[in-house]
Design a protein around this nucleic acid. Structure first.
Length: 484
RNA sequence: GUCCCCAUCGUCCAGCGGCCCAGGACUCCACCCUUUCAAGGUGGCUACGCGGGUUCGAAUCCCGUUGGGGGCACCA
């Protein structure tokens, strides 16, 4: 049997990391098994619906390389893949459930339901629908209070509903007894609980992989499968990603909950994918730097943890550095360019000169960047117009009184006809180390500040070679007076 | 409140009865390398929540307890 899995985001806002996390594990298994991966849009909540959300989700998933085989944009044998376009397919099943006595209509107003729950909680009772409408006709119910015109359809949970199910990650799971859950809302839209089951069945989904938060509603779904006479899928409930305080990861408490945040912050998609594959999961050999293909190759549900991992940015930052350093030089330049452009250091599109300068800088900065957002500060002095070049105050303060050193360096460099890393360094060493008797660290510090404007910068002779004789000399002579 | 899930260094993982007075990674600290900062190298700090069992033997199994998390919507 060929395996079919899906990821089913709800277009209610900015794409969530949890969606990528689920997609990754779904997909790792799908690709290992040679099955199909479906993207289904669960847009049954018209109150929270956001029109641009679906596209953002698709963009983010593509950015991460987590691509689907069937979906609303590319179609497939089970189209449509948007639940709002499938309203007609749910209706017959609702009718069937009502006819078979597995569901019933309910006219209770939301006010009455809220009041009922409050009372139950005050009485320290489990909350749940009290079945006020069960067995009543519309007319009979209308005579009682808390009545509302348009009914919903509720699942009738039997005395002994199925509460146990096998989970690929957790083994036998014991879930709580469900409430008489609403299946069809008053607006005619199905709730999640009806729509997932119907769609998963109709779309031939074999494995339902979702967050742990769904464990408690699985019995409802089981009930619907059974009532409709359908085979149950296999279940895998993933651990929930957490904030630092261990609560379920949220956009409110954690910027990383927002998928679009990572690109803006200079993270590489392959690093994020790798990192997500490290949360609640590990490679059999303990490898920590691995790509999707490797993860998929020996993917195993039994290796997925049941403990919700804290989404810790520090390790992701390290991992990102690993990936940044592993980038081919031209790839690094290409990925870094947008950050230089948005910092206003490079024109958009970049000129040939600017490209050439960046290419020359790559070997100097690639090991010094963990996040792409760190690049602009590191290369600022190479791109900034001479008139706008300035020395950081703190850096200047560290080397005040080095006019002699700077002048000596400038004088020595002035005579150079061949301008390269080697000749520059030789000239500086001769003038400052041999000539003034300074140690290299002492000698280079003021020069670095004068030329780069900061006390932390890429290697000095290399930087000076890239900068060119003219600009270096000008900066040295200016600094010789200002730092004199 | 109620039901369910979970429990190894600060964090992410390994461990699935003896190889563990617990191993790797991130972070932090020290040292080496070194023209600054990185990168790289070496070393170090730090954990099986607690209490009972079971067993010759428990981080690993069982029970309890404590702690954390999630669900309890005409949201997903």
């Amino acid at each position: 049997m060929t395996v079919r899995l899906r990821v089913a985001p709800s277009p209610t806002g900015d794409p969530h990391v949890g969606t990528a996390y689920m997609a990754l594990f779904n997909l790792a298994f799908v690709r290992q098994q040679g099955g199909a991966f479906v993207l289904r849009v669960e847009d049954t909540d018209r109150a929270r619906f956001q029109a641009d959300s679906e596209q953002q989700v698709k963009d983010m998933l593509h950015w991460l390389g987590l691509d689907w085989d069937e979906g609303p944009d590319i179609g497939g044998p089970y189209a449509p893949y948007r639940q709002s376009e499938r309203l007609d397919t749910y209706r017959p099943y609702v009718e069937q459930l009502v006819a078979s006595g597995n569901a019933y209509e309910c006219w209770c107003s939301s006010e009455r339901l809220a009041q009922m729950r409050a009372q139950q909680q005050a009485a320290k009772l489990p909350t749940g629908y009290d079945r006020r409408c069960l067995g009543l006709t519309r007319e009979q119910r209308a005579e009682l209070d808390g009545f509302t015109e348009t009914p919903v359809v509720r699942l009738l949970v039997p005395e002994d509903p199925p509460l146990h199910f096998a989970d690929l990650i957790r083994g036998e799971v014991n879930a709580p007894r469900p409430d008489d859950q609403v299946l069809l809302k008053a607006d005619g839209f199905p709730t999640y609980h009806l729509a997932v089951v119907v769609d998963d069945h109709l779309m031939g989904i074999t494995h339902v992989v979702r967050g742990e938060e769904w464990i408690s509603s699985t019995p409802k779904h089981l009930l619907v499968y059974d009532a409709l006479g359908w085979d149950r899928p296999a279940y895998a409930h993933m651990p929930l990603l957490r904030n630092t305080d261990k609560s379920k990861i949220s956009k409110r408490k954690n910027p990383a909950a927002r998928l679009t945040w990572f690109g803006e912050q200079g993270y590489l998609p392959e690093a994020l994918v790798n990192f997500l594959g490290l949360l609640g999961y590990s490679q059999p050999d303990g490898t920590e730097v691995f790509d999707f293909a490797q993860m998929s190759r020996d993917f195993d549900w039994s290796r997925v943890s049941t403990v919700g991992p804290v989404f810790d940015l520090e390790k992701l930052g390290w991992l990102n550095g690993e990936y940044v350093r592993a980038l081919a030089p031209d790839d690094f330049a290409a990925r870094g360019m947008p950050f230089l452009q948005s910092a206003g250091l490079v024109a958009d599109p970049a000129s040939d000169d600017e490209r050439a300068t960046l290419d020359a800088l790559v070997p100097l900065v690639q090991t010094r960047v963990a996040l792409l957002t760190e690049l602009p500060a590191l290369v600022r002095c190479f791109f900034v117009p001479e008139e706008a070049f300035s020395i950081e105050e703190a850096a200047a303060a560290k080397v005040t009184g080095s006019g002699t050193v700077l002048t000596a360096a400038a004088d020595a460099l002035e005579t150079l006809t061949d301008w390269s890393t080697e000749t520059v360094q030789a000239a500086m060493d001769a003038a400052l180390i041999d000539g003034l008797g300074l140690k290299r660290g002492k000698a280079y510090a003021p020069v670095r500040v004068a030329v780069c404007g900061a006390s932390v910068a890429p290697p000095l002779p290399e930087s000076m070679a890239v900068l060119g004789k003219e600009r270096v000399l000008r900066r040295l002579r200016v600094a010789a007076t200002t730092l004199g």
